[in-house]
Structures are given as structure tokens and as C-alpha cells.
Amino acid sequence: APTVVALYDYTANRSDELTIHRGDIIRVFFKDNEDWWYGSIGKGQEGYFPANHVASE
């Protein structure tokens, strides 16, 4: 899976979202739409995150 790096912190608001912190490396499983992508950090943490909070490595 491609990876991206978090540019900003984001705290999940729902159970299907992913909390990310600046500098996190996120594996992107799919891009649901322009605004929300689905991916994982490490083991067990996965969910939707805002695409405008990340950039290609």
C-alpha cells in the first residue's frame, strides 16, 4: 500500500476515524473520495482520516 505522512494532528470524531499526529506514516488502503481516505498506522489502528492533513512522502 502507498504511504503518506501526516502534516497536522487530527483527532477522530467517530469510531471509524483514525487519530493521526504530525509526522505519522500512514498506509493508505483506499481513497474513499477527495476528502476522506482510509488507512492504518502501525498495527490495529485503522480508519478514515482527512486527505488534506497528509502529503506524499
Rank of each mutant, 00 (worst) to 15 (best):
V54S: 02
P50I: 04
E34G: 08
G42K: 12
K43C: 12
G23E: 04
D24Q: 11
E34A: 14
G23Y: 02
A51K: 07
G44A: 07
A55L: 13
G39T: 00
K31P: 01
N33V: 03
R27K: 14
Q45D: 11
W37T: 08
Y8P: 01
F29V: 14
S56I: 15
R22T: 15
R14V: 06
G44R: 08
H53K: 11
T19L: 00
K43Q: 11
S15M: 11
V28Q: 01
D24N: 04
H53E: 00
R22G: 04
A55R: 14
Y10W: 09
Y8N: 07
D35I: 11
F29H: 15
A1L: 15
K43A: 14
K43H: 13
D35H: 11
W37E: 00
P2S: 15
H53S: 08
D32G: 13
P2D: 15
W37S: 00
Q45L: 10
A51M: 03
A12P: 10
I41S: 13
S40H: 05
T11G: 06
R14N: 09
A6V: 07
S56N: 14
V54Q: 03
T3W: 06
K31M: 08
Y48D: 01
V54W: 03
E34P: 15
H21K: 15
V28S: 02
I26S: 00
A55M: 12
E57G: 09
T3D: 07
N13K: 15
T3C: 07
V4D: 03
W37K: 01
D32M: 13
R27N: 13
Y48G: 02
L7R: 09
G39D: 00
I25D: 04
A6W: 03
S15P: 10
T11N: 11
A51C: 07
L7K: 12
F30P: 03
A51I: 05
I26W: 00
R22W: 04
V4H: 10
I26M: 06
N52K: 13
H21I: 08
A6P: 03
Y48E: 00
P50S: 07
V54I: 09
P2R: 15
G44Q: 12
G42I: 09
W36I: 06
Y8E: 11
P2I: 15
G47A: 02
V4M: 07
T19M: 01
V54K: 00
V28I: 08
L18E: 01
T19Q: 04
K43E: 14
W36M: 10
V5M: 13
G39H: 05
I20K: 06
S40A: 15
G23K: 03
V5T: 13
G39A: 00
S56A: 14
N13I: 13
G39W: 06
I25T: 13
G39L: 02
R27G: 05
N33L: 02
L18T: 02
Y8D: 09
G23W: 01
A12G: 07
H53Y: 13
